[in-house]
């Protein structure tokens, strides 16, 4: 769960992170004011399945594609915030799987993530969900 750019409004990101915790997920929260490079590095070191970007400042078209281009292609990317309708296809074109507008319930986001990520059952020994 990442905040990109200078937008410091992180209530939404926190509420969603907390909600995903309650849905049994492990969430790495990056804190505010991260550069695309920082987010990509965190995503890589933590070997995450999904990157969620929360952005409210209107800078999504400038920043989100940059983050996407730095991420591994296997990583699912979702974006949440205030995104005008006509920008959504543009974000989807660069590889954003789903855009959630402000006010989306946390349950809906959790459900989507669960469906978008495949959990390999190649456990050799007892399994831990990560």
């Amino acid at each position: 769960m990442a905040k990109v750019g200078l937008d410091g409004h992180d209530v939404g990101a926190r509420v969603v992170a907390r909600g995903l915790l309650e849905a049994g997920m492990e969430v790495i929260y990056t804190g505010i004011r991260r550069t695309p490079e920082q987010i990509a590095r965190i995503a890589m070191e933590e070997d995450v399945d999904v990157v969620g970007i929360s952005i409210l400042s209107g800078a999504h078209l400038a920043l989100v594609p940059k983050v996407r281009s730095l991420l591994d292609s296997s990583v699912v990317m979702v974006v949440g915030g205030v995104i005008p309708q006509e920008d959504i296809p543009e974000l989807e074109n660069v590889g954003v799987s789903r855009v959630f507008l402000s006010g989306t319930s946390v349950a809906e986001i959790a459900e989507y993530i669960q469906s978008a990520v495949s959990f390999p059952e190649e456990s050799n020994g007892s399994s831990d969900g990560r």
């Binding site: 750019g5 200078l6 937008d7 410091g8 004011r33 550069t35 400042s57 209107g58 800078a59 078209l61 400038a62 920043l63 940059k66």
Partner: peptide, 22 residues
Amino acid sequence: DLPTQCGYDSDDLMSAGEVGKV
């Protein structure tokens, strides 16, 4: 805008995409 509020010039790297936005 956010760069000004956060103490970055409009041509700072950190300001990318945010100039004049909010």
